[in-house]
Amino acid sequence: MMTCPKPALLCLTRHGETDWNQQGILQGWTDVLLNPLGRRQARAMAGSFNHQGFSAVWSSPLMRARETAEIVAPLIRLSFPKFHNGLMERHFGVFQGVPKAELAEFNPVVLQLILKRNPDGYFEGGESMDEFADRVLGALADIGSAHDGQRVLVITHGWVMDVVTRHIKGLPRKAILNMKRKNGESLWIAVHQGIITATHEPENQVQSAA
């Protein structure tokens, strides 16, 4: 008789800080490196993850996530991270690279969508919420199916974690969460035969202070 595979446990973690995070600039798919604090946060993540028994590290290919993963992986004695395009941040179209201070002047409606992390907001030239959520959940199902019964660290982005939070809480994709994941904050999920659910694993959070 065939045995049913055990679920994969995925620890989704937001990348370390960048200068654009600090300056309030919408990053989206724009590549921005970690700043010195972000690199310290990545090393702190490695310290907190050292005894979690991770089998692999996956990451968004965007540089802020990639750099975080490349710092963490060797410090927890794992090989080079793997990358999945489905873990990338939401594409914000024409608003990528625009400081929030400028949006406050010429497009306060869009600024409010961003500040409230309104998933139903329209970002010209960017992804719709359904396009974004479908690729994120598809990526996590892919990673989970490749790691049945294992623990995996997944370095990704804040709006990605919002998608997953709504999903595991059974909320509509358009629900406003009124929360923002901090750099280095984690969310654990289980993936079993493509089904993504919450787990009771403790959440990790790396402090933003220097």
Rank of each mutant, 00 (worst) to 15 (best):
Q22T: 10
D19H: 09
G47V: 06
Q22I: 04
Q27S: 06
T30D: 10
T30C: 15
Q22R: 15
A44Y: 07
N50E: 14
G47I: 05
T18M: 02
V57N: 03
R39L: 05
A56E: 11
C11S: 07
V57M: 03
T13W: 07
Q27P: 09
W58S: 10
Q52K: 11
G28W: 07
S55G: 13
R39G: 05
V32F: 02
W29D: 01
L26F: 05
H15D: 00
M45I: 08
T30S: 13
S55A: 14
S59W: 00
S48R: 14
T13P: 00
F49E: 09
R43D: 09
G28S: 08
Q27K: 00
A56Q: 12
Q52W: 15
N21R: 02
S48H: 12
A46D: 08
W29C: 01
S48C: 12
T30I: 15
W20R: 08
T18V: 09
R40E: 15
I25G: 00
R39W: 05
S48F: 11
L26D: 04
S48W: 01
L33I: 01
W58D: 05
C11L: 15
A46C: 03
Q27D: 03
A46R: 02
D31S: 05
D19L: 10
N35I: 03
L37D: 10
L34M: 04
G38K: 01
A44G: 11
W29Y: 12
G16I: 10
W58V: 03
L12G: 10
L33A: 15
F54E: 06
T18K: 00
T13K: 03
G24Q: 02
L12D: 01
T30Y: 07
T30M: 15
M45R: 02
L34N: 02
A42W: 05
A44V: 05
C11E: 13
G47R: 15
F49W: 14
M45E: 11
L33Q: 13
Q22V: 13
H51F: 12
A44R: 15
S59Q: 05
A44N: 12
R43I: 03
W29V: 01
R39A: 11
N21V: 06
A46N: 10
G47S: 10
Q22P: 06
W29P: 04
A56Y: 04
